[in-house]
Computed example of a mutant assay.
Amino acid sequence: MSAVISTRGLVKRYGRVRAVDGIDLDVQQGDVYGFLGANGSGKTTTVRMLLGLVLPTSGEVELLGGRMPRAGRRVLPRVGALIEGPASYGHLSGRENLRLLDASGRGGPWRTRSARVDAALDQVGLGGAGRKPVKAYSLGMRQRLGLAGALLRRPELLVLDEPTNGLDPQGISEIRELLLDLHRGGTTIFLSSHLLAEVEQLCDRVGVLDRGRLVLQDRIPTLVAPTGSTVVHSPAPDRVRALLDGRVTAVEGDRLVVRGEDPAEVNALLVGAGIPVTGLALDRPTLEQVVLAAAGTSPDRVEVPR
């Protein structure tokens, strides 16, 4: 696979403040990459540099193999993007806004513009509201319209900044399914969010930004891989500890962590000694634990599922 987004030592300063501090992003073709961080951590600034909307203070950005912003004219027609709040003309309908957005012709021939616009509106669930003035749209509908604009060119790469902002739970679920369907069709997705639950349900790789620094970047299955221990739940923790002397590394009530990644072996030892077991599983960290440990932050800075 080839790199779709690559940055090296990317820095953005505003006066003495380093909004982005030397990050090295690596997004491969076919990824659904979650760019996770608290509000104010530098995510949007980074995304704007990726697209050539903000010039970095130092460092390099490559997008679809082209050095940005120099290669912008060549590579940006292959990119769909929704950054911050979607822009629109309130007095015009959603359909008219998309027709204006597609006026450059980069999405395809003008003869098929109406069909492209209608298809994009249908994709995001706005097919029945395309003729309504955008000033009458809810925040969630405006967000859907912005996403429709990002899809007009049938992009190879989709860059989204908080795409479910303002959507109700049903809308979030619908957008999630849409993005997964686009990914199955070959689109690489870069999703910036402060919502861990959103990233966990959509993404296969994650990068975590904290105060402008990239503190974590890896595949999610790798981050939540088993630790090499087994979690045992037993109403007789003292007996478990006595039997497995030296192998018990943590005890919390009836929950014990035992060295050894074969639950069947641990269970056989305990049952053979007549010790009751009410639960048994491989020990593995949650993504929440991994992210909070890497960011050195608290759940009020990165929103985690409850």
Rank of each mutant, 00 (worst) to 15 (best):
V231K: 02
L180H: 01
V17A: 12
V271W: 06
P155A: 11
P285L: 00
R219E: 10
V240W: 00
R70M: 12
T297D: 07
E62M: 11
Y33K: 07
S192L: 08
L53P: 01
V208E: 11
H91Q: 15
G22Y: 02
V277T: 04
E62A: 13
L100N: 10
A119H: 13
I5G: 11
G15V: 12
A197F: 00
E84M: 11
Q217D: 14
T57S: 12
L51G: 04
T45V: 00
P305W: 04
P56W: 09
Y33M: 09
A19I: 09
D161A: 05
M1H: 11
Q289E: 15
P86Y: 02
A119N: 13
R213F: 11
R239I: 05
P77C: 10
R111L: 06
A242N: 05
R18S: 13
G127C: 13
P299W: 09
V208Y: 08
T249S: 15
D245W: 09
P169Y: 12
A293Y: 03
A250G: 10
A115S: 08
G246S: 09
S298I: 14
G212W: 03
G146K: 09
R153G: 15
R48F: 04
L269C: 07
R73E: 15
S298G: 14
T45K: 01
L209S: 10
T7F: 13
L214P: 08
A120L: 11
L282K: 04
L244Y: 06
S41Q: 04
I220G: 04
G186A: 04
G37Q: 00
S138D: 07
T7A: 14
T57W: 05
V159E: 00
G166N: 08
H194N: 11
G72Q: 13
D122S: 14
V17H: 13
G85M: 14
D26G: 13
V206P: 04
I220W: 05
V79N: 09
G34R: 05
G42M: 09
A38R: 10
R211M: 12
Q123D: 12
G34L: 03
A268W: 01
P221G: 02
T46M: 00
L100C: 10
Y89W: 14
L167C: 06
V124P: 11
G274H: 06
A150C: 10
D254L: 09
L180E: 01
R144G: 01
L63I: 12
P305I: 07
G207D: 02
T46P: 00
T57R: 05
A136L: 15
V75D: 14
D181T: 15
L191H: 00
A294W: 03
G85D: 15
T164K: 03
D161C: 07
M1C: 10
G253N: 09
R154V: 02
G85Y: 14
A103T: 10
R95W: 06
P86D: 03
L196S: 06
L256K: 13
V11R: 11
E288V: 05
L145F: 01
V231T: 10
L98T: 05
A103N: 11
D168S: 04
L25R: 04
P133R: 12
T188A: 07
V257N: 07
E177V: 10
V124L: 10
P226T: 01
L202F: 07
G30M: 05
F35I: 02
R205K: 15
T164P: 00
V134E: 01
D122T: 15
D102Q: 05
L98F: 03
A71K: 01
T249P: 02
G185E: 12
A87N: 06
H194C: 08
A38M: 03
A293D: 13
